[in-house]
């Protein structure tokens, strides 16, 4: 049983920069597979900085690296991109907008 967190996806400068270099570049992959969580959450997972983890939502899974950041406990931030996309559903509740933020996510060690 992994750690249950709330996933918030969003923009970062690195992710945007990667967009120009082409979305197949290493820089872009590195930028968009970089998850951030609170230090205490990272500790609870007994994970080192940049350690690999598997994220699982009801929509899919993604393998990312996790770093500690100044975030409240319980939150997991992941830049927009192909990794985040696998975790996001395509239901829009009649608005056209999928839920890119606030998705229950389970973090498992690899």
């Amino acid at each position: 049983m992994g750690l249950r967190l709330v996933l918030v996806t969003g923009r970062t400068l690195e992710q945007a920069a990667g967009m120009h270099k082409g979305k197949c570049s290493e820089e872009y992959r590195a930028a968009v597979s970089r998850g951030e969580i609170a230090p205490e959450n990272l500790a609870a997972l007994s994970l080192a900085e940049g350690g690999a983890a598997l994220l699982r939502t009801e929509h899919g899974t993604a393998e990312v690296r996790l770093f500690s950041a100044d975030l409240p406990a319980g939150l997991l931030f992941l830049p927009l991109g192909p990794f985040a996309n696998t975790l996001v559903g395509d239901e829009t509740e009649g608005t056209g907008m999928p839920s890119f933020k606030g998705i229950p996510v389970e973090v498992e060690l690899l």
Partner: peptide, 9 residues
Amino acid sequence: AAHFPSRAA
């Protein structure tokens, strides 16, 4: 293809 949820993409 890069920004939609994977299923839509």
